[in-house]
Write a protein that binds this DNA or RNA. Sequence first.
DNA 1: ACCATTTGACCTTC
DNA 2: GAAGGTCAAATGGT
Length: 280
Amino acid sequence: MEIASDKIAIKVKDQLVQGHEFTIQLQQLFSQPGSDLGPAKDLVAKILGTFNDTISAFDSFEPISSSSLVTAVEGSQNASCDNDVKLEDSGDSRKRLGPVKGKRGCYKRKKRSETWTVESTNLEDAYSWRKYGQKEILNAKFPRSYFRCTHKYTQACKATKQVQKLEFEPRMFSITYIGNHTCNTKEVTPKIKSCIHHDEIIMDSEELKSPRLTTSIKEEEEKNHGSSTESDLQLVWQEMLLFEEEHHHHHHHHEGTYGCVETSASINGLDSTDLWSWQR
DNA sequence: ACCATTTGACCTTC
DNA sequence: GAAGGTCAAATGGT
């Protein structure tokens, strides 16, 4: 076994794990009462996400000819999706209210993905989410909201998050991230048609025809009411986003096409005014 | 007309 | 069987 590369890999992973640990400690430090660094927390969340991603990448294809594998598979899924030959009418005693359009559900067994939780006053991170559910939770005053990545179907991105208001600190949310994004968030692409072979079924239907979105960020004049600290935070947050952008594709010119749109998502009927979604 | 959210039903997990 | 997570029809917004 020529383990040269294996050794390196192990070392790298150890370092990652350590960095992960440190970040968690930092996160816990933040959650001490008295500090209100929302944006920093979100940043921490993202860092953690990166670590999780990398670490689990290692875990997933672990060379390991040896032992100690963790029976990771659990692929069994008795999801009853397979044989469609099943009856689908008459005999079923189940109550089906609406028009039966086909089998609903057909869930697959979930692969445990990385999860991590942060607490923050603003619900935004750099990704765009779509709400798909809300549930009352036992012994909790506030319901839990469920979000998935906007690009779940166009790009098969598995990331989701759950948001719930903290009972004793209603301005704060507990945000649990599940899985990491695999979508290209900025992938609207210049669309060089010339090199596309012509039957792309891919169809990323988001052409954003709304002309008013293209007005760039001249909305500096914040709409929040006087609260200077709030706006400061907002600005810091924006800067962080831009910073990140630049680092993603090194000095990409023409980054200014982001528009900021207020969404009407509401948690518990009480919509949070600091809910923003960034779109291109 | 399209797209996001709401909301109760449906499904899984414990 | 209860609690939590997900689906999708209905609804609402632009």
